[in-house]
Simulated scan of single mutants.
Amino acid sequence: MFTSKPQFPSLVPDPIPEEVTDRDEGVFWRINSTALSDEQQSQVCVPDEVCPRQREVLAVHWHPEFVPISLAVSRMQTMFPNREQELVIPTQHNVLMSHAGYSGVEVDCYSRRFNQKVQLLVHMTGEKAAGADVLCSMLEHTRQYRATQLLDLLRTFTQPVQERLDAAARVTGADADLIRFIAVHVTKLDTLLHAHLAELPLDVVKNKMVRNFFHALRPNYGHRLIDQALNFLQEVKKEVKRDFPLQYFFRTSEVIEEARGLGAGIVVPHPEQFWPILLAEYDVDGYEVWNPQSQRYTDFLIEVVTSKNRERSRSRPPLLIFMGDDTHMGEKVRTETETDPAKAGREVGYQPAWEDWAIRKRLLRSGVARAGVISEYTARLQG
């Protein structure tokens, strides 16, 4: 194991209790609870700001998680009180969900041509979703397989995968005491998970369970130690994802074929994370050129879509330009010390890039406006 010597006195207590306590059990059930208190429900419905000047709301990339869609929509309606046009479709990861006559999902799939995982947003009317039995079976397979990544992350510590731990230690500078501290608590979580796996909703069996468990340790161990632990865990998670076999996902072409057979619309989200998909000429309706975690290449992506449309035959509908808020509603009910700062400020329908003057100029030159995208995509979904 990587055993660099700490430069400063260790924050890790000695000894570290290794047995699972009643408190550990309580924390486990609290972080995996999907029930919302009255206070949390009220909290969800009140946005941090109001945008009275925004007239159109396009939200086709966001995740309700365990928060009822009705509460998420109530928050959106309060945030945009003067909206005149909207298209709001939830896109839970690998679970088809519905709102206001439309259904949507974000699907993990495998592009064999580029040997990497990609994601697709699939949207359809509720009527078409009623016949989506095969697609839902594909999604269930994908969801169950993706859940195994958490087990692999835990196993990296309980049955030490030394290469992953060493790689994370080199990046973070973690010493042996910190790694042992993390391993003890990961082992506790692993014990609790396997003891109660049959009682848990599959939706909570995700990598973020580890993050949430360590956040809950802050009152006992303080922010500095837990921040160091989370930093190390983040690097280990990258190693786990890098090693995760992709061939058990359905191929991108298979998902597209099934979705198109249902008459669904398809959008490629944050393509800058897997840019080769731009070369694949997949049968999709459009590309997302901006979201909170994919902002660097917005101008480039707008130009790519515009260029593709110039080359398309007149018999093919133009590719549409989308922006996604990528909101995770579960972050709205966590405490300030437990939320993911990168996701906490996201809001359903809030995509400030539409109002950015430089981006607006480029969009106008391409004949693109949010109202037009809403109208055109709605027509396609209803066609």
Rank of each mutant, 00 (worst) to 15 (best):
Glu376Asn: 10
Gly101Gln: 06
Arg365Gly: 00
Ile69Ala: 10
Pro68Ser: 08
Pro317Asn: 15
Gln92Asn: 15
Val134Phe: 08
Glu257Asn: 12
Ile179Glu: 06
Asp175Arg: 14
Leu278Trp: 08
Asp175Ser: 15
Gly265Gln: 05
Phe250Ile: 05
Ala353Tyr: 00
Glu84Trp: 13
Ser74Met: 15
Leu364Asp: 02
Glu281Ala: 11
Gln144Ile: 04
Ile226Ser: 09
Gln273His: 13
Met1Pro: 10
Leu193Pro: 09
Arg312Cys: 07
Thr125Val: 02
Tyr377Met: 08
Ser74Phe: 03
Gln116Asn: 07
His93Ser: 14
Lys208Gly: 05
Gln293Val: 10
Leu121Ala: 01
Leu217Phe: 04
Thr21Phe: 01
Asp177Trp: 07
Val73Gly: 06
Ile374Tyr: 13
Val304Trp: 04
Gly265Lys: 04
Ala72Ser: 13
Tyr282Lys: 03
Ser137Glu: 13
Gln54Leu: 11
Glu235Asp: 14
Thr337Ser: 13
Asp48Gln: 11
Ala229Ile: 04
Ala195Tyr: 06
Cys136Ser: 10
Leu200Glu: 06
Arg155His: 05
Leu96Glu: 12
Asn231Arg: 15
Glu281Cys: 11
Arg346Trp: 03
His141Asn: 07
Asp227Thr: 08
Lys117Asp: 01
His328Pro: 05
Ala72Trp: 07
Ser33His: 04
Asp48Thr: 15
Gly26Lys: 03
Ala167Arg: 12
Asp166Gln: 11
Ala132Leu: 00
Asp166Met: 08
Lys237Cys: 11
Leu121Asp: 02
His61Arg: 12
Ile359Glu: 00
Trp62Met: 04
Ile182His: 02
Ser98Ala: 08
Met138Ser: 01
Asp22Val: 09
Met323Gly: 05
Pro352Cys: 05
Pro318Tyr: 11
Glu25Arg: 09
Leu233Asn: 14
Ile321Arg: 00
Thr34Gly: 07
Tyr110His: 15
Lys208Thr: 08
Pro352Glu: 06
Thr156Ser: 11
Pro64Thr: 09
Thr191Lys: 09
Ile266Phe: 06
Asn207Phe: 04
His63Gln: 07
Met1Leu: 04
Val44Asn: 05
Leu121Asn: 04
Leu278Glu: 04
Asp48Met: 11
Ile179Ser: 02
Leu278Tyr: 03
Gln149Gly: 05
Gln351Ser: 12
Val95Tyr: 15
Leu151Cys: 03
Glu311Trp: 07
Val210Thr: 12
Leu319Tyr: 09
Arg155Asp: 10
Ala371Thr: 11
Leu301Asp: 00
Glu331Ile: 10
Gly173Met: 11
Thr91Pro: 06
Thr91Asn: 07
Leu225Lys: 05
Arg251Ile: 14
Tyr350Val: 03
Arg75Lys: 12
Ile321Asn: 00
Trp290Gln: 00
Leu87Val: 15
Lys128Phe: 01
Ser307Glu: 09
Ala72Gly: 11
Val46Pro: 03
Tyr282Ala: 04
